[in-house]
């Protein structure tokens, strides 16, 4: 057994060097040379300052921006505290939260009482950092955003379409609208501000 423990210690040291130091550094090196933007976090800059990441959702509350999904990460979109609500399907806390979010969504977007609200708009995501909303969710927010910005709704709709990605290869995942990219595009659109 002592002999095995000695071998175990040395093999562990060698494999730590190989898989815990060399391998991550090689991948980091490849990233730095060939895939710099992705490896750094797909960061988005405006006027040289980091505004966020294309892949990480952020909180938007004012009417002139498209709103993301509810988030359970910290106080909402805290990228140092990713996570889900973990509320079970029969938990009243979840059902009450959904009802309340649906009412607020209808109020904010001028929908009649009891109108259907897209399910992604009333549920928290798995990461709490979901960068996307569903195309239907975006469509229902167009009138509000257009009014708040004094923009033509068709111009806003065109930006929504540009920020929408379909299923990968036509079959993988679901169509989605990137909220940060959409809002940045609106800010730089000629009729904006």
């Amino acid at each position: 057994m002592r002999r095995q423990l000695l071998s175990a210690t040395i093999v562990m040291a060698m494999l730590t060097l190989l898989t815990g130091i060399v391998y991550p550094l090689v991948v980091t090196g490849i990233g730095r040379v060939a895939l710099r933007d992705q490896a750094e976090g797909s960061l988005v800059r405006a006027d040289g300052r980091i505004v966020g990441s294309r892949l990480i959702g952020q909180a938007f509350t004012t009417p002139r921006y498209f709103h993301p999904r509810p988030s359970a990460a910290g106080d909402g979109y805290d990228a140092e505290a990713s996570g889900a609500s973990n509320l079970g399907p029969t938990n009243d806390t979840l059902i009450d939260a959904v009802r309340e979010r649906a009412e607020r969504y209808r109020r904010e977007n001028g929908l009649p009482p009891g109108a259907p609200v897209p399910v992604d708009a009333v549920t928290a995501s798995g990461s709490g950092l979901d960068p996307h909303i569903s195309p239907e969710n975006a469509r229902l927010q167009i009138p509000r955003v257009a009014r708040a910005r004094g923009m033509d709704p068709s111009a806003v709709r065109a930006e929504v379409e540009r920020a929408t990605s379909g299923r990968v290869l036509g079959v993988l995942g679901e169509p989605a609208v990137n909220v940060l990219e959409l809002n940045m595009a609106l800010d730089s659109a000629p009729t904006g501000r």
């Binding site: 029969t90 649906a102 897209p118």
Partner: peptide, 22 residues
């Protein structure tokens, strides 16, 4: 229960799920 609370006829379960995966 969630579907009804959102005023929908039918919807997938999106609590704890990401839009890009569905």
């Amino acid at each position: 229960a969630v579907t009804a609370a959102a005023g929908l006829q039918s919807a997938p379960n999106m609590e704890g799920k990401e839009v890009r995966f569905g």
